[in-house]
């Protein structure tokens, strides 16, 4: 197993897995506790439209993805603030339109659909140096942003109206979170693909939520779970020659089931 590390692509993949876990641990926790999971899904699928357009017009797919992700997420953020009750419908529409745009562009692009496929299911084994750099920058930014505004983030996630009465700039925070979610989604697409990105953002925090006493604890636990899932997924992919993204998610899903079973048969605490 360890001999795999002599390959540079394996070392890159491992670095990408660790960084993706930092990103998913922190942002996934906010996304899950603030109930933005479907929005993150919308962003991921809208990004597909940008990737398709970039491949057709011949510029960087990362750039196309982030452009579409930002535009769609800001629109969704604006909608959720304006008419929260219609947010799920608007998100579904953006979700579908993003996919359709991507598919149309791939139809128009002469030759192959292989590149687009790699964005659907991820290609951690082909992760580029620059992707690792971008992920490192985002991880650092998150590690600075979260402790500094922890109290505000907690109040914003827990009880938005109350946070407003304390003078917390909830709208600014909301847009900041949305922008960070867009970057996180676009960078994680490289690892597990956009179809599965939502799972990596939501499964580890959802497991962690059941065991943790604080948002910070949930972030740390999600990070550890995320790393465990992606590294063991990677090992499984290497050993059994599987698609890495799918292997990571299946292992995460098994972890989730195990947590549920454990909670079910554990001695029940009073009042729970």
């Amino acid at each position: 197993m360890l001999e795999a590390l002599q390959y540079e692509f394996m070392r890159n993949a491992l670095a990408a897995a660790v960084l993706a876990s930092v990103i998913c641990g922190i942002m996934g926790t906010i996304v899950v506790s603030k109930k933005l999971v479907s929005m993150a899904g919308g962003v991921a699928h809208a990004a597909y439209g940008g990737i398709g357009m970039a491949l057709y017009l011949g510029f960087s797919p990362q750039l196309g993805a982030i452009g579409f992700a930002l535009a769609s997420s800001l629109f969704m953020a604006w909608t959720t603030l304006r008419m929260a009750s219609r947010a799920d419908t608007v998100i579904s529409i953006i979700w579908a339109v993003g996919m359709a745009t991507g598919v149309i562009f791939s139809d128009l692009t002469p030759g192959y659909g292989a590149d687009l496929m790699s964005y659907l299911f991820g290609s951690i084994l082909m992760v580029a140096k620059e992707d690792i750099l971008y992920m490192a920058i985002l991880s650092l930014a998150l590690c600075a942003f979260v402790p500094l505004f922890y109290g505000h983030l907690l109040a914003y996630s827990y009880d938005e109206d109350y946070a407003r009465t304390r003078g917390v700039p909830v709208d600014v925070l909301h847009f900041t979170v949305i922008v960070l979610v867009s970057f996180s989604v676009v960078l994680t697409i490289r690892i597990v693909g956009l179809i599965l990105v939502i799972a990596l953002l939501s499964i580890p925090p959802y497991i962690a939520e059941k065991f943790c006493r604080s948002l910070a604890g949930m972030m740390a636990t999600s990070f550890l779970l995320s790393m465990f899932f992606s590294v063991s997924g990677l090992a499984a992919a290497y050993t059994f020659d599987l698609t890495s993204g799918a292997a990571i998610i299946i292992i995460a899903a098994i972890g989730y089931l195990a947590a549920e079973v454990y909670l079910k048969f554990r001695k029940k605490p009073k009042g729970a």
């Binding site: 109930k35 109290g151 505000h152 907690l154 109040a155 827990y158 304390r166 003078g167 917390v168 006493r213």
Partner: peptide, 25 residues
């Protein structure tokens, strides 16, 4: 209106009452 699954301790909820604008810690 409050999400019951949210992982938060009593003391951390009460501390929210001491938030002021952009105060950090």
């Amino acid at each position: 209106n409050i999400n019951l699954d949210f992982p938060v301790r009593v003391i951390d909820v009460v501390l929210m009452g001491r938030l002021r604008g952009l105060k950090f810690l």
